[in-house]
């Protein structure tokens, strides 16, 4: 009797909650769609907010110099140039280094050091960017100015305008590029490590069996196999460098109206231009232009990242059933 009662309690519970699954599905679906709505909202808001500038300039202002909000003169070419050059420097430095680190962590590192070293490299990605900026201002910029920039500008810079002085300010495109390189290094290293980890072992064994050294094995059998994934990692790093704001803003020197011929000269990036001017914009035209710059930046990083994800995703899957260990 008692058991029958318990059973019927359970049954009434089931009876009462028979729509539970549908409700639960709808509830989680609602919040999942909210993520989609957030993306749509960010895009839509930036689109609407920039309508004034789009109506007046189109995209032409991206290709002229001279930034003077007071005179309603908006030329964002220095910002575009600064973004591309600083990210390019960052990629040139962090790309080879990151790939070498990924190779070391995946192929050569003794098992015991693997996870502490990975953790330490990834810790570089966890440090807030404003701390990179501050460290850059107080420590790296003075060091770089007196030990690297000044000697180079005095010797090589005499014949190459790209490396010419003056270096008195210290802050500039080169410094920003180097700081960005440190910041994107962990991304590139971690992704290289992950895509190398799914290269099937018979690739390595076949190469070793014909008498290759370890490096020849890596160079000829492992890296080519993971090429797409590594390129994806480089592009993810590039995407991060393009959108980086605070560190770039603090060390790049904020020269907004002209393009410096020297890499040691000051500049500005698109993201840091928006961060420095939007909070105290003069009028709605100024605001709208800055929002348009942010929208363009959003579009570019979106494309770079989507392409990179595609490459990494395809590479990280690897051939079926061939994952190592």
């Amino acid at each position: 009797m008692a058991q029958a009662e318990r059973l019927s309690t359970w049954q009434t519970f089931q009876q009462r909650t028979k729509h539970g699954d549908v409700i639960f599905w709808l509830l989680t679906l609602f919040f999942a769609l909210m993520v989609v709505a957030l993306v749509a909202a960010v895009g839509y808001v930036a689109w609407v907010g920039s309508s004034e500038a789009r109506g007046r300039f189109g995209l032409s202002f991206l290709f002229k110099t001279g930034w003077d909000p007071n005179a309603q003169n908006f030329g964002a070419l220095p910002a575009i140039y600064g973004t591309l050059v600083s990210s390019g420097i960052a990629l040139l430095i962090a790309g080879p280094l990151g790939i070498l680190i990924g190779v070391f962590l995946s192929e050569l590192c003794p098992q015991r050091f693997k996870s502490p070293l990975s953790f330490m490299v990834e810790l570089l990605a966890a440090i807030p960017s404003v701390i990179y900026g501050m460290w850059g201002v107080f420590v790296f910029v003075p060091f770089f100015r007196s030990w690297v920039a000044a000697p180079i500008a005095k010797s090589v810079g005499k014949s190459f305008p790209l490396l010419a002085g003056p270096v008195a300010a210290g802050r500039g495109l080169m410094v920003a590029g180097i700081i960005l390189a440190i910041m994107i290094l962990p991304t590139i290293a971690a992704i290289t490590r992950d895509v190398l980890a799914v290269v099937p072992n018979h690739q390595r064994e076949a190469m070793l069996a014909v008498g290759a050294t370890r490096w020849e094995m890596i160079r000829k059998a492992v890296l080519p196999y993971a090429r797409a994934g590594i390129i994806g990692g480089l592009m993810l790093g590039l995407g991060r460098a393009l959108g980086e704001t605070m560190a770039a803003l603090m060390v790049i020197g904020s020269v907004k109206d002209k393009i410096s011929t020297s890499l040691f000269g000051g500049g500005i990036t698109a993201a840091s231009l928006v961060a420095s001017e939007l909070p105290n914009a003069n009028d709605s035209m100024h605001e709208s232009t800055l929002i348009l710059i942010a929208l363009v930046l959003f579009g570019i990083t979106l494309c770079v990242n989507a392409f990179a994800r595609l490459l990494v995703w395809q590479a990280a899957r690897g051939p079926v059933g061939s994952a190592r260990s």
Binding site: A46, G239, F298
Partner: peptide
């Protein structure tokens, strides 16, 4: 997309 979007955007 959200995690890759620059925080400034």
């Amino acid at each position: 997309v959200l995690s890759a979007a620059p925080s400034i955007v």
